[in-house]
Nucleic acid binder design. Structure first.
Lengths: 127, 127, 127, 127
DNA sequence: GTGGTCTAGACCACT
DNA sequence: GTGGTCTAGACCACG
């Protein structure tokens, strides 16, 4: 239930919140019904504006990831099953296409590019 | 000598141009003296604003990567030898780190992610 | 290309904008590529805050109904053809169901309810 | 004596209750002395907060539509005769105006809109 | 010129 | 207590 906010990064604060909630839900750590910190509470805790938090929550609500309990805060919404493997691969492809394009432009051959990607995966999985 | 511009991406157009020129030079594919497309030509070809192309060229000129030949457009500046493999891998890493991060968030295991990346590389090399 | 904004209504301003754009697109009156008034322009024209307009546009962009042309304002996104008559009737039905429910509770018979509705339609068409 | 509560609608719960009672009384279906469901009973039946029901009843009491009988719950207050047809039509008009506005924006012609409304009325009367 | 982001502070509605 | 909405004004990135 903890958020890490970097106010000095280029990434917008509201986006940091959105992504963190999204990850917690996708990874199953926050199941349906989990209550989120209140807009004002989260804002005060990190010394940011309540509007900024509200914007993040609103976006997550629009996505169907959060539900508003009137007068009682936001909770993780009931969700359909996780996306299929094919769907998740389709979501992953754009980033890999971009990287592949860069590898070719940099004259990095496929073997080395794949080795580097494997290394990156290892780092992310066990940092 | 071809540019690929995505106008619907979050990445600014001028940055796409800068990065692509940089990679072509760093990888040694565009040697010193190579002529770049004219500002107007490139702008018209991709239906973007000439100011945007100009901004990208100006930034590259400020870096010393391009030289302005009066009345003859821009050419790749005289440069030391192409970057080493290690340098090129360092330039490639950020994109792969992002993709790796997304793969883990999407619960796509390493084997499948690597297979997808290999497929993307194949597509770019032999389209 | 005109918006009607009621600041004294209970309905939020940003929602009025969202709904009006949505209907204009769904009914085919605003085709793909139609340019929308700028955030600042629309705000000034109706004496409302630019943030309010921005919020509406952002929501429409998240829905995929609008596209952001960087530095050039928002346009109606490329979309499938206008919704069929059946789809438009489906969008209209909820409001009419609510009204029908109220009519029955108010003991207003169907003939009189229909007559009143016809009158309302006349007013809207030729105000 | 039944209420229909939609918790996922934008319309506040307390207002749904107030409006439904008001219409039943105005149309003469609930005469003076009719007993209303208890705050707790109604709240439990629809899984809503008793405070919400209480707020609705209090507002109706303030209007003079309900009377509090100590220890015996609320009853419809003694009232002049049911509202005239004109008054009831005036209460119905706002909903129909909204629907008419939407019909025009959706390019649904009057004939079809009226036909759809007739269908909705039929459904509500004989569900 | 365009939209995006954030802040500070106000008022409202709902539970 | 909760979130929603709006205002006013600031700064930034992009074209």
């Amino acid at each position: 239930m903890r958020f890490v906010i970097h106010t000095s990064t280029a990434e917008p604060i509201y986006k940091q919140i959105v992504d963190q909630v999204r990850r917690q839900v996708v990874s199953g750590q926050w199941g349906a019904g989990t209550e989120l910190p209140s807009v004002r509470g989260l804002a005060q805790e990190h010394a940011i504006n309540p509007m900024t938090v509200s914007k993040a929550y609103s976006q997550l609500e629009a996505e169907g990831l959060l539900e508003r309990r009137r007068g009682m805060g936001m909770v993780i919404a009931a969700r359909p099953a996780a996306a299929s493997l094919a769907e998740r691969l389709a979501l992953l492809q754009p980033s890999l296409s971009v990287a592949a394009h860069q590898a070719v432009q940099l004259q990095v051959d496929s073997l080395r590019a794949l080795a580097l990607f494997r290394k990156c995966l290892g780092k992310v999985e066990k940092p």
